[in-house]
């Protein structure tokens, strides 16, 4: 009996110690803070950004829209399917362009179709926000859009120096989620928009697995803070905070993702 328990414990440990890479739904454009209005390229990729690893096939998203000055514009019809190449495979993704107008914050929101994760026999739906600002005029960056799972930023995600702290509130169904578990990951391989691929060069090397996907917790009010140690793109994903817990009779994790971009002071 004792032996069985030891073996079982060993198995569980093995299962737990598999590389801790996290899924991240990306909405990527090279620059979140623009000096002038222009037409920007956006890539929607469901991947493992730190390792530029396995890229999952996205289904047709349920919703894709932008909010600017409180006005919501449906962008779902603008999406075009592409193939995104990671370092290990390629997966179905989407691309689109958006013509920015005037000054202010453009909050891009994506509700992807639930993704079936075979290995865990469950679904993942990462509801994602990415904010592009033009001319420095703040309008909607701190707005709660009302997504089922949402991170509401307390710092402008596009106006962070390296070393700044990024803070946010994790919300599920409009209510803050105490002690929410948040995965944080760095885009360690430059996304190459013209090639629909990640660069092979890694920016940093993780000393150990806990540095690949960093897991932090929100406080009792659902608030979290994270000091940004390096310029570039950082993703924050609050796990399973949305109200939908099931899809097609299987367990579903409805996550909230937000992206920030930090710049060096120079």
């Amino acid at each position: 009996m004792k032996k069985v328990i030891v073996v079982l414990a060993g198995w569980m440990l093995l299962a737990l110690t598999e590389p801790a890479m996290a899924h991240f739904q990306m909405i990527y454009t090279p620059d979140m803070a623009l000096e002038k209005t222009k037409t920007i390229d956006l890539k929607l990729v469901f991947t493992h950004p730190f390792e530029a690893g396995h890229t999952m096939d996205m289904g047709k998203p349920e919703q894709y829209f932008v909010v600017c000055k409180g006005k919501k514009t449906d962008l779902l019809p603008t999406l075009k399917p592409i193939t995104w190449t990671s370092l290990t495979n390629s997966g179905l993704a989407y691309e689109t362009t958006f013509k920015l107008r005037g000054m202010g914050d453009n909050v891009f929101c994506l509700v992807p179709s639930p993704y079936y994760e075979k290995e865990e026999d469950c679904y993942i739906q990462q509801i994602t926000k990415m904010i592009v600002n033009t001319v420095g005029f703040p309008t909607d960056w701190d707005a709660e859009i009302g997504l089922p799972a949402e991170i509401v930023p307390l710092d402008k995600p596009y106006a962070l120096w390296t070393g700044n702290v990024f803070r946010g509130i994790v919300k599920g169904d409009g209510k803050s989620v105490p002690f929410a578990e948040i995965e944080v990951e760095y885009i360690n391989h430059q996304p190459l928009s013209d090639k629909n691929a990640f660069a092979t060069k890694a920016e940093v090397k993780a000393p150990q697995d806990a540095f690949v996907t960093m897991t932090i917790k929100a406080n009792e009010n659902g608030e979290f803070a994270f000091g940004i140690p390096k310029a570039g793109w950082w993703g924050f994903c609050a796990l399973g905070v949305g109200p939908a817990k099931e899809h097609n009779g299987k367990e579903m994790s409805q996550d909230a993702v937000i992206w920030v971009q930090a710049r060096d002071m120079k």
Binding site: K36, T37, R101, G102, M103, T134, V135, G136, F137, P138, T139
Partner: peptide, 24 residues
């Protein structure tokens, strides 16, 4: 705060400018 202004050509012979301040 700093003053901000951005203009665009409407493509119909008119131009629209939008202004504001960096504090919103």
């Amino acid at each position: 705060h700093t003053p901000l202004c951005s203009c665009y050509d409407n493509g119909d012979g008119t131009v629209t400018c939008e202004g504001g301040f960096s504090d919103g």
